[in-house]
Design a binder for these strands. Structure first.
Lengths: 214, 214
DNA sequence: TCCGTAACTATGCAAGCGTATAATTAAAAA
DNA sequence: TTTTTAATTATACGCTTGCATAGTTACGGA
């Protein structure tokens, strides 16, 4: 039996790193942190477990990379909804809120993933930095949208007021997202984005409507 | 050396269970789930590690008990603020919001604790039941306060509307609580309750004021 | 005062963990 | 082709984990 096929293939480092990160995220989402052992991760990525220490300096390092990947992915999903060119600020804000409160952003695995990471944020400085970075990134985008919407509605605000509005709206979105992911059966389909639009609208004083983009 | 003092004391089962639960909570709050090993827990509670399996059927069982304890504790802290008898519904609602957004409810350890448990909620049915129970309990109290405040302000709502308002206000509180705990340095003292009062007020359409009870 | 028993401790075990290291091998360079 | 080297696997080590089990001891009832 002459085996022609090689036992493994060499891949570019970045490709392997990505595969390991993706495997890590999938495992944590499905089984929680406990399920994400080096053996399970390597298995899921179809490599031997040595690859983790070859491509990352430690398992913690891989976890950090996975966290950064997941958070930026979620921010991107929320921040880049399908909105026509030249849409009004109000519509863009509404689309942002809706995108953050529907699938695939709202998802049990996604929330579980986020909660798993939150624990490590307290211990690990690198994780904390990623956390702060992502949080502020998300909130800044939201603040810019709110500023545009208020401007459009000819409502004037001071910077501190604007900041408070952004924090508040961010909290509503985060809270609804969390509850929707942690308790999927407690809400009807479409209920979360509806409540989100009403609440954000009430907070900033501009009525937001369903963009119908879902 | 005649040792008069006994090597250990016998305690009522409930007392020991409480001590183990408290030790578990303290450890998870300080060091995350990783730090809460049977040995560390027993050590903190000043008993041998066999006590965990003696008083609980497994470590998981202890964790569940700790979760239930923590959640009901937090709900009680939020729901029973120091408010004068015969206060208006508006004031009671404001006190509720404020209590949920100040120390000791807002606290890094508390959020870390909650996040640690959230992971287990997905896997374990018992944990899920505790989670749902606590969530609905908290939200129902909030909904009752909102109903009173609206009634007082002569604003009429339908039950579904009221439900939505409660979900939204709950989300703001949860979101702010979470961010305050996860990123303590990002907010000034008193900023969180202030934003909470403004937002909840805006959502239900009743202006809420600082109760000054802090 | 002396049992009886249930609360409690001490000790050990098997499994799983992250990590280290040496042996392989695919694939580019010569 | 042969050589080189870096990507990859294979294997093992030391440590920690939750759990089991046998032995010990406080303490109320006889």
């Amino acid at each position: 039996m002459t085996q022609n096929h090689p036992k493994f293939r060499r891949e570019p480092a970045e490709h392997r790193r990505d595969a390991l990160v993706l495997a890590t995220l999938a495992l944590i989402a499905e089984q929680g942190v406990r399920g994400a052992t080096v053996r399970a991760i390597a298995d899921r990525a179809n490599v031997s477990q040595g690859m983790i220490r070859y491509h990352f300096s430690s398992k913690e390092d891989l976890i950090s990379a996975a966290y950064a990947h997941h958070m930026s992915h979620m921010t991107n999903l929320t921040a880049a909804p399908n909105v026509p060119d030249g849409a009004s600020a109000k519509v863009r804000l509404a689309a942002f809120v809706e995108a953050g409160l529907t699938s695939p952003v709202v998802d049990p695995g996604s929330v579980s993933l986020w909660a798993s990471f939150l624990n490590k944020v307290r211990e690990d400085a690198r994780m904390r930095q990623i956390h702060e970075q992502t949080y502020h990134d998300f909130r800044d985008r939201l603040e810019a949208l709110i500023a545009d919407a208020l401007n459009e509605a000819k409502i004037t605000t001071t910077p501190p007021q604007l900041r408070h509005l952004a924090i508040a709206c961010n909290a509503v979105i985060d809270g609804l997202w969390m509850e929707g992911g942690a308790l999927p059966s407690a809400f009807q389909p479409g209920e979360l984005p509806e409540i989100g639009l009403q609440s954000v609208g009430a907070i900033i004083g501009v009525e937001l409507q369903d963009t119908g983009s879902q």
